[in-house]
Amino acid sequence: MTRRTTSPESQRPARRGARASQVGLESRTRAWLRHHRAMWLDSAQRLAKRPLSSLLTMLAIAIALVLPSGLWLALDSARLLDAELDESATVTVYLDTRLDERAAMDVAARLRDQAPVAGARLVTAAEGLAEFQQGVGLEDALASLEDNPLPAAVVVTPADTDPDSVRVLASNLEAVDGVDEARVDLAWLERLRRLAELGQRLALALAGLFGLGVLLVVGNTIRLAVESRRQEIEVVTLIGATHAFVRRPFLYSGAWYGLGGGVLAIVLLVLGGHWLSAPVTALAESYGAHFTLPRLGLKGSVLLCFCSTLLGWLGAWLAVGRHLADIKPR
C-alpha cells in the first residue's frame, strides 16, 4: 500500500479518475460515437468479406419484401382507378321516346336544377345513335332502321358520389316529368371497392407475415454470426464489455442485411414493373383506359429501405438478446 502511493505509476489511475469525472460525459459520448462508427464499418466489412452468403441473405429478405410491397403498389393503383371511377359515377336518365329535341332540352334543364346534381349533359337521340354506331360497329344494321330506336338521355353527375345518396337521387330523378327511367349501376363499383379493401387487408397480412419472415431470416443469420464469434463474446464479456457493446456489431450487421434486402427489393420491383408494364398497358387499352403501373417513387423507396433496415435491426436485436443469455464465459 505504501509502495502504491509513492510510485509514479500507481498515481496514474487516481489522476485518470479525476480527469474522467471532469470530462466524463463528453468523452464517453465521443467514445460511444467512435465505437458506433467502428462497428458500422466493421460489420459492413464482415459482410463484404463473404459476398455470396451476404447477398443470398439479402436476396431472401428482398423476396420477402417484394410480395407485400408489390401488392401494396397494385392496390395503390386500384385506388387511383377508384378515384377516377368516383367521378364517373353518373346516373343515366332515359327520357320518354316521344319527346322531341326541344322538350328533351327542357327536361335536361329541369334535371340540372335538382338539388344534389353537379351537372347534366343531354345526349340527344341522334347523338346517342352516332355513339352507338361508333362503339358497336353495327353501322350497316343500324342504318337500315327507318327510325332511331334510341331515346334521348341525360347524363347526370351527382354532387354526392356516395352510393346510397346516388340511389336516392336516381329515384328522385325518375319522378321528374318526361323521364322514362333513371339507371344507376353501382353494384360493380361497390364490388370493386370491396375487392380493394380485401386486397388491402391481404397486403397487410402478407406484410406482417413476410415481415416476420425477414425477422427470422436475419435472426437466423445473426444467430450463426453470434455462434461463430462466441469466443470473442466470452472474452470481451470477461474483460468488462457491456451488453450494449457486445450487441452493437450484430445490430449493425442486421441493419446492413435489412438495408441490402430493401435495396434489392426495390431493384426487383423496378424490374418486375418493367416486365409487367407492356401487357398491363395493352390490357388497359383494350378496355379503352389509360393505365400505367405505378412506380415506387423516391418516397416509397426510402420508406421501404427504412422499414427493411428497421426489420433487420430488430431481427438482430432479438437474436442477439436471445443468444447472449446462453453465452456465459467458462
Binding site: S27, H35, E232, V235, V236, G240, A241
Partner: peptide, 24 residues
C-alpha cells in the same frame, strides 16, 4: 490465454481499452 485469432497482437491488447472507450 484467450486471445482472438482474427486480429493482430496490437488489437488484442487494445481490446480492454476499446471496451472502455479510451481515445485511440
Amino acid at each position: 490465454h484467450q486471445l482472438l485469432f482474427d486480429r493482430s497482437v496490437f488489437a488484442n491488447v487494445a481490446l480492454p481499452l476499446e471496451i472502455q472507450g479510451v481515445e485511440p
